[in-house]
C-alpha cells in the first residue's frame, strides 16, 4: 500500500437552503481542507450546492448489511404509526 495515497472522503451537498445535505459521491484528498475544496470543484461545477460536508470515508459506521432483516423488521406492520391507518376520521376537516 502506497502511504502517500490520499485518503477517501465522502461528500455531502446541500442543494439549496432549507434542504438536507445529500450524499453526492466521494473523492480523494490529502486532508479535510483540500477535501472541501476538491468537493467544491468536483461536485458543484453546475451550481449543485450551497453547502458541502466532507467526511473521511473510514469514519462512517454503517449498519450491518447481513442483519438487514432483523435490523429493519420492527417498524414493518406497525401501520398505526401512519396517518393513513385512521380511516374513520377521513373527510373530517383540518384533521
Amino acid at each position: 500500500m502506497n502511504t502517500n495515497a490520499w485518503p477517501l472522503w465522502e461528500v455531502f451537498v446541500r442543494s439549496s437552503r432549507g434542504l438536507s445535505h445529500v450524499h453526492a459521491g466521494s473523492l480523494h484528498a490529502p486532508d479535510a481542507a483540500m477535501a472541501l475544496r476538491n468537493a467544491r470543484d468536483l461536485y458543484t461545477r453546475r451550481n449543485e450546492g450551497v453547502s458541502i460536508w466532507v467526511v473521511p470515508a473510514d469514519a462512517i459506521s454503517s449498519s450491518d448489511p447481513d442483519s438487514k432483516g432483523s435490523f429493519f423488521e420492527s417498524p414493518q406492520g406497525k401501520d398505526y404509526r401512519h396517518a393513513t391507518y385512521y380511516t374513520k376520521s377521513e373527510g373530517v376537516k383540518h384533521l
Binding site: 502511504t3 502517500n4 495515497a5 490520499w6 490529502p30 486532508d31 483540500m34
Partner: peptide
Amino acid sequence: GAWVREAAAEYARKQ
C-alpha cells in the same frame, strides 16, 4: 505529480 501527492500527504501527516 508524484512529488506533489507526496508533499500533500506529508503535510497532512505533520499537521
